Simulated assay, not measured.
Amino acid sequence: MQKRVIAALTALTLLAGAAPAAGQNAANWEIGPIIRGKNYSQGMPLRPQPTRTGWQFDFPVGSAAAGHVHYVTFRPGPIAPGSRIVVRYRVDGRTGTRFVPQESPHVPATVSLYFQRRGDNWSAKGRYEDFRWYAPAATVREIALGEHEISVPLDDPNWISVFGRTAALKPGAIEAALADIDRIGLVFGSPSARGHGVYATAPARFTLLSFRIL
């Protein structure tokens, strides 16, 4: 049964549109994060699979022990102040499939945007508290079957740092991170633990349709 479902998902992907732009090229993206040699996206490949529009990956199935996806990111290069990120994606799977945050299985699983400053040591201590920024709560999406879009301006004052402090409360911090940006992308987790990992209860696939920085 699982093989038949994955084959059907592959067929859906092959129906999609044109060649991917640079920010959608699967070879530029990494499934992680990798911290001190450990990849926290257990049971996942290092790269998503390329499609005609961008990329895709299959969620680990069944339990946290089977694996979980955390961060899917790429290095964007310089980003102009006042830019907006617009992401379109599709989630395919059987009706009734649940998406589960591996640390908090009783709450909804989510996908949202984030970016990270160069040189982060992942401690969140001292100045490193302001090296990772997560998109405003209003733009966080519960993972659900179907096609979806996330659109977030980078100058929104409601972006939050690691401990949930908004950019409005940290004058200059988000601007400094954007001026020295290292990675940007999608995080999978829960409303309060954005990038802490998600698995599915049945075979399911996440397909990036477009990732634009405008």
Rank of each mutant, 00 (worst) to 15 (best):
F211P: 03
R183S: 01
V5Y: 02
A65P: 14
A204P: 13
D120M: 08
L154N: 04
S41E: 08
P157G: 09
R98S: 00
G185L: 05
L46A: 11
A177K: 08
E30Q: 14
I35A: 03
G172P: 01
N39D: 09
A11T: 15
D155I: 06
R88K: 13
R98F: 03
L178S: 13
V162G: 00
A204Y: 08
G43R: 09
G172N: 02
A109Y: 07
D156Y: 12
V61Y: 08
T10S: 14
G195R: 05
P101M: 05
R90K: 06
F188G: 00
A26C: 13
Y71C: 07
I79G: 01
K170R: 09
A200Y: 07
D120S: 10
A202N: 03
Y199R: 06
E30R: 14
Q56H: 14
F59Q: 07
A135R: 10
F211L: 05
V140D: 03
A21L: 10
S41N: 11
A200L: 06
T110V: 09
V5N: 09
S192C: 02
D92P: 04
A138H: 07
Y40T: 02
D155G: 10
R117T: 04
A80T: 15
G17I: 00
F59T: 07
A27E: 12
N158A: 11
A22V: 05
H148A: 15
E103K: 07
V100D: 03
V86S: 14
W55H: 12
S83A: 14
A144Y: 02
A124T: 04
G93W: 05
A22P: 04
T53V: 14
A8S: 10
A200T: 00
S63I: 07
T51D: 12
T166L: 00
S112W: 15
R118L: 08
W55F: 15
T10C: 10
P45R: 06
I85M: 06
Q56P: 12
Y71A: 05
A167F: 07
V72E: 07
A167E: 13
R52N: 13
A66Q: 12
Y134R: 04
P20A: 11
P60A: 03
L154I: 04
T166P: 00
R90D: 12
A167P: 12
S104P: 01
K38S: 02
G37A: 06
V198K: 02
I160R: 01
I34V: 15
G119K: 06
S123E: 01
A200V: 06
R194V: 13
V152W: 03
T110I: 12
P60M: 02
D92F: 10
S210M: 01
V107S: 05
W55D: 11
G197L: 02
A21K: 13
A109H: 10
L113A: 01
W122K: 03
T13P: 00
W55K: 06
G43W: 09
T51M: 05
A22Y: 00
A173W: 05
Q56A: 15
L14P: 00
A80P: 09
Y128L: 12
I85S: 00
V5L: 03
R141G: 11
P136A: 01
T110Y: 11
V107D: 08
R36A: 14
A168T: 03
P81L: 15
P108V: 03
V111H: 10
